[in-house]
Nucleic acid binder design. Structure first.
Lengths: 152, 152
DNA sequence: ATTAATGTGTTGCATTTGCAACAATATTAT
DNA sequence: ATAATATTGTTGCAAATGCAACACATTAAT
């Protein structure tokens, strides 16, 4: 059997498989540790923390979800008092921007610390190899970004 | 902003993002080229071709979907005449195994060739770098596999 | 021998997800 | 000036997804 011929042995499919493990692992962890928000919502908080006050569409582009899903995630976070939304303008256009509340920052930091501690004891790869892998994936992702039309 | 602190800059999240691009790109390609089956079904055919006649649960473990989803994919492929299911035993247990029909093999080969041609002209990374990235991802995936409980 | 536990596949349901369409506003074209 | 195009956010719907529960059979335990 010529393995290289098959799509399931391509880097594209192998990446998807690996990412699925990451997602499962993350979700299981969030449930096991009884965090008060699911992984997806934490990603939103972390993204806002890194990128600052951004409008919903820009957030959607960053988390690679469509606009309705992004809006719903923000609704949920707003109901929990973890974010605040406020009107602002971007290119002379009215947009809804988002920022973390004090509670939201607290929750995000807390989860971040627990995750950091957890992954530090995680015997997957040595630190050096992980760093190397990360830069190569980044390179690959940058190449893909130019080719894919995301419609967000 | 200390980037390393944030989950969204971790290898886990970066992998998920990259995989999303791969998935979008694949789905767009399958639609643009008017293949007669969606990407997910092609993956099933390719998996069966590589791993031979396997039962549904083993297939589910390979494609990382749950048993109901796997069964439904096979229903669809069977209705299209691309696979055949037959009763067999595995460890003295009655199972439904699956093999490609002649038409299924033809379709799989055809799609495989088009994909190969397409990705060959794909200016993402040089062949050497892709190969290197693949082996590192494999290493990482193997490490994850031991940690994640997949419940399939 | 009876009960419990495991493995396989299916059905049904609840959640998630993405997509198309819409409303509102701003920019550009004719 | 009017129409066409573009941007942002929302609503509604259809498809996909995962999960618990069930049916059935086999093995293991008591």
């Amino acid at each position: 059997m010529q393995q290289e011929k098959h799509f399931i042995n391509s880097i594209y499919y192998q990446l998807e498989q690996t990412a699925k493990y990451c997602k499962y692992l993350g979700n299981q962890l969030f449930e096991k540790l009884n965090f008060e928000i699911p992984l997806d919502e934490f990603v939103v908080l972390d993204t806002i923390l890194v990128h600052g006050e951004i409008c919903q569409r820009d957030l959607a582009k960053l988390i690679l979800k469509d606009r309705p899903s992004t809006g719903r995630l923000l609704n949920s976070l707003e109901e929990k008092g973890l974010i605040e939304r406020f009107a602002d303008t971007k290119n002379n256009r009215l947009v809804r921007k988002t920022k973390l509340t004090a509670k939201g920052q607290c929750v995000t930091e807390q989860i971040t610390n627990v995750l950091k501690e957890y992954f530090a004891r995680f015997p997957v790869l040595s630190g050096e190899k992980v760093l190397d892998l990360k830069t190569r994936i980044q390179e690959f992702k940058d190449g893909l970004e130019k080719e894919v039309e995301m419609k967000i």
